[in-house]
Amino acid sequence: MAIKWEGVMPAVTTKFTTDDQLDLKMFQTNIEAQLDAGVNGIILGGTLGEASTLTYDEKRELTRFTKELVGTKVPVIMNIAEQTTKGAIKAAEIAEEDGASGLMMLPPMRYLADDRETTEYFKETAKSTSLPIMVYNNPIDYKIEVTLDMFEELLKEDNIQAVKESTRDISNVTRIINRFDDRLKILCGVDTLAMESMIMGANGWVAGLVCAFPKETVAIYKLVKAGRIKEALEIYRWFLPVLELDINPKLVQNIKLAEVATGIGTENVRAPRLPLAGEERKQVQAILDKAMATRPEITSEVLVS
């Protein structure tokens, strides 16, 4: 299935039962809510998906289940976060076998690769697969930046097509457009900068809090793209305190608690993560309680526009 690399693409959480098994029933409930809101893709196995805690078989089960669930409605994209080029190539092969439509790729994990090593890592993986690739550029959390000069080299591979822009430098959107025009699609990867990035020309939003608030997220995207900035701002200003839960070391727990608030998830996480507790939980719950009490009404007219 072709990927346009635009719109809202949820980096979905992985649902677990109380006895630490995959909770495919609740996972389906959440995915159906995403589809009903009009998202443009589903991304599995990212940070929010707790991929580092998933077994090899669980990742395969999630990919196959999601592909069967969404059919041809939207592309299913699997994240690759591997330590070796060999491992990344194998992960890409498995994702393709299991029906994924594309890949999101982090730089090499653990080893702090230099520019040449990072570039070769992406290029060798791209050469090994027919799947289109979005490079996840997040030097804040993962310590390796994919520079514009590196992208110039990477774009020699036709299936490297997009970037999840998470440098947290809003002007980088303009730099990318000035350098590459439409050759490199841009999806904002930081919830608190999403509206600003799209106004500056980003093609879409790899979102986190969409996991709990899909209609609000899609509405912001559609209103911005329609030039209805004032209407988008009304939703975005309401949303911002909740979006800030995404830029936090406990983002997985925060967002899963938000999913509980909206009825499309559970708090269950996989150890060593634990659900929020004490004062930390109270603070997050207070943010969510206020958001739910003042939640805007999203009309169907906005979602289908």
Rank of each mutant, 00 (worst) to 15 (best):
K4C: 01
G7W: 01
V8G: 01
V8A: 06
F16W: 15
D19N: 15
D23H: 12
D23A: 10
M26W: 08
Q28C: 00
N30V: 00
A33Y: 03
G41Y: 10
I43H: 10
L44W: 09
T47G: 14
L48C: 02
D57P: 01
K59N: 15
K59M: 15
L62T: 07
L62R: 02
T63D: 03
G71W: 11
V74A: 13
A81D: 03
M104K: 00
R110C: 10
E120V: 00
K127H: 14
T129Q: 12
S130R: 12
P132I: 05
I133S: 12
M134I: 02
E145W: 04
L148Q: 14
L154R: 05
E157A: 09
E157P: 02
D158K: 15
V163G: 09
S166K: 00
R168S: 12
T174R: 14
N178C: 00
L184Y: 12
K185P: 05
L187D: 05
V190H: 02
T192I: 11
L193R: 05
M195N: 08
G201W: 07
A202W: 06
W205K: 05
A219S: 08
K230T: 12
E231Y: 04
I235E: 03
F239V: 03
V242L: 03
E244F: 01
N248H: 15
N254E: 05
I255A: 01
K256M: 06
E259V: 02
E259H: 06
V260E: 14
T262S: 15
I264K: 11
R270H: 14
P272K: 11
G278A: 07
E279D: 13
E280N: 00
A286H: 05
M292Q: 05
T294V: 02
E297G: 04
V302M: 15
